[in-house]
Computed example of a mutant assay.
Amino acid sequence: MTKRSHIAVPLLVVLASGQAQADFYSCKDNNGHLITSDRPIPECADKSTQIYRNNGILKAEIAGALTPEQRRTAELQQQQREAAARQAEADKKEQRYLLAHYPTEQDVELERKKALDAVQAKIAAEKKNIAINTDAMNKVHTELTQLPKDQPVQINQKKNKEDDLKLTIAQSQKLILRYQTDEQSINREFDETHKRYIELITNHK
């Protein structure tokens, strides 16, 4: 039994029509007209439907089908919830790592120093190489200026050696610049780690 009402009909009036023991379904059609029935209403398949007990108390509500825009909004909200959940889990993992890896604040700085010492040792080694190769290049250059012009083979050999030493020095200089960039990255990383560690310790007090 389906009844279509074009005005607002009190639900209890409908319920008093002889179906005292049945649940009643209610929804509004595309024109906003109230539809009631003692069984699921086909016209309400894509609309919000309320199910009432025979005493007029709301038993359940069935959500209607989402519009494309509502579906996109729901999907976006779900993606945001999932992203927030992933971030929360990542934060928990980071917190567990920090507390396990750095028992105290001083341990963070000790780890920074250890990382910086390794890079600075590489810089020192390259500077030493530059000094050694610069001395060698200066020596070759001096020898080159002292060679008679009638010894082209020896002159070319000295020039080639001088060029090789220049190239070696340039490579060491490039390595130093790269290691200095590494130093900056290490400091930025440990600055952030230190900050996060302090926040974590403060929040756990």
Rank of each mutant, 00 (worst) to 15 (best):
S5I: 15
A8L: 11
A8N: 12
P10D: 13
V13N: 11
V14S: 09
V14L: 06
L15Y: 02
A20S: 13
A20F: 13
D23P: 00
F24D: 00
S26N: 10
K28R: 15
D29S: 02
N30F: 11
N31G: 11
T36V: 15
D38Y: 15
I41Q: 02
E43A: 07
E43F: 01
D46P: 02
D46S: 12
D46R: 10
S48N: 13
S48L: 12
S48T: 14
R53S: 10
L58A: 06
E61S: 09
L66W: 07
Q70A: 14
R72Y: 01
R72L: 12
E75F: 03
E75L: 12
E75K: 07
Q78T: 10
A83P: 01
A84D: 12
R86T: 02
Q87N: 07
Q87P: 03
E89V: 04
D91H: 08
K92V: 00
K93Q: 13
L98S: 02
L98K: 03
Y102W: 04
E111H: 07
D117L: 05
D117K: 04
I123N: 07
A125L: 10
K128M: 11
I130K: 06
A131E: 14
A131F: 06
N133S: 07
T134Y: 02
T134W: 03
K139R: 13
T142D: 11
E143T: 04
Q151N: 10
Q151E: 07
K161T: 09
E162C: 00
D163A: 15
D164N: 15
T168S: 11
I169K: 04
S172Y: 02
D182F: 03
Q184E: 15
I186P: 06
R188W: 04
E189L: 11
D191K: 07
D191L: 00
E192H: 13
E192L: 14
H194R: 11
K195F: 11
I201V: 15
I201D: 03
I201R: 15
N203F: 00
K205M: 10
K205Q: 13
